[in-house]
């Protein structure tokens, strides 16, 4: 039985997916209240809507209006069920594939339509030799 302090240990932490890729931050946490039973942690929330809501509800409305204006459907905040959480340490590890499931559509759109089209975008850069790790 591990004790956790949600605001200190989970909220605003880096998320890492099953391939150790960055998958955003824990922008929000959903708690489920139950009758006669202690509440349980239901899910983690991610996305700009959640961040905007944390600053002010008005900002969230503006953001959604703006999105409607550009003609994009308002996406629900991306949710990860608490059961997908694997490890909480330096970062929160979740068992998803961020390339497929996470709200990385902006990243993908950019990679495909903009950044990826500039020459040299997928070229490996020459790294410094790792000093201790390869021995």
């Amino acid at each position: 039985m591990k004790r956790l302090q949600l605001a200190r240990d989970v909220l605003d932490q880096q998320l890492i997916d099953r391939y150790e890729c960055n998958a955003g931050k824990v922008d929000g946490i959903g708690l489920e209240l139950r009758d006669g039973e202690p509440p349980r942690v239901a899910f983690l929330d991610m996305g700009s809507d959640v961040l905007a809501r944390r600053l002010s509800p008005r900002l969230e409305r503006w953001l959604q209006a703006l999105r409607k204006l550009i003609g994009r459907k308002t996406p629900e905040p991306y949710r990860v069920e608490w059961s997908k959480v694997v490890k909480i340490a330096n970062a929160v590890t979740i068992d998803i594939d961020s390339d497929r499931d996470a709200p990385n559509h902006v990243e993908h759109w950019l990679a495909e339509h903009l950044i990826g089209r500039i020459p040299g975008a997928s070229r490996e850069k020459k790294k410094k030799e790792p000093e201790q790790h390869n021995q």
Partner: peptide, 20 residues
């Protein structure tokens, strides 16, 4: 701040938002 993939050593396509 937003938990994106970042790294100056990665090919830009792998951290497109950072490169953006």
């Amino acid at each position: 701040s937003f938990g994106w993939t970042w790294g100056e050593d990665l090919p830009p396509k792998d951290d497109a938002r950072f490169a953006m």
